[in-house]
């Protein structure tokens, strides 16, 4: 694994908390958006799952916000956060090919699992690279929390079974030529 770029290194607890807050807000927004989409496209089971995940992310965001109460956070422009993906690690990849209005619960859990793993990887990266010792410790704790979310989703995936490659029949397909 190559060393992290200098401009991706977290330098303080306040900077880490600002990133964590953005990560959780983005995660909540992502799941809310997916829940809304699935509700609009008459996929209530998956909508319900995403609603639950959005609520969980909201709780995590509230916890991070509470942690931020004792500090002044840096105000970071959306394009200047120190992560390498286009959006926050648990945020939306709006072009995710695995997201479909026909997706099953198993596929939805797989999407969420991918997101949570990215979140855990981000905190592990900070825990290993931050220049501030306290920030490293806090990031390691956050990575542990994310690992719990990952384990929860992995257990759900065992329950639902792995996503099946074949998509269910589309009862209202787009009108395209054969």
């Amino acid at each position: 694994m190559s060393p992290p770029a200098a401009d991706s290194i977290i330098e303080s607890v306040a900077e880490l908390v600002a990133h964590a807050l953005e990560l959780e807000y983005a995660s909540q927004a992502h799941y809310e958006q997916l829940a809304d989409s699935m509700a609009v496209h008459h996929n209530p089971e998956v909508a319900s799952l995403f609603q639950r995940l959005a609520a969980l992310s909201g709780e995590h965001a509230a916890e991070v916000a509470a942690r931020a109460a004792d500090m002044t956070l840096p105000r970071i422009p959306p394009w200047a956060f120190k992560w390498e993906c286009p959006d926050a690690p648990e945020g939306a990849d709006c072009l995710d090919p695995d997201v479909s209005y026909r997706m099953t619960t198993a596929e939805a859990v797989a999407v969420a699992l991918h997101n949570e793993r990215r979140g855990r990887a981000y905190y592990l990266h900070v825990a290993a690279s931050a220049t501030d010792a306290e920030a490293r410790t806090l990031a390691a704790a956050m990575a542990t929390e994310e690992a719990e979310h990952v384990a929860l989703l992995e257990a759900m995936l065992v329950e639902t079974g792995a996503p099946q490659p074949a998509e269910p029949e589309d009862l209202d397909p787009p009108h395209m030529p054969a």
């Binding site: 958006q33 997916l34 809304d36 989409s37 609009v40 496209h41 939306a92 709006c94 072009l95 997201v99």
Partner: peptide, 13 residues
Amino acid sequence: VKPVWCPGCGHFG
């Protein structure tokens, strides 16, 4: 208001 765009649509971005 819930967007009616197809999941995976770029407009969400």
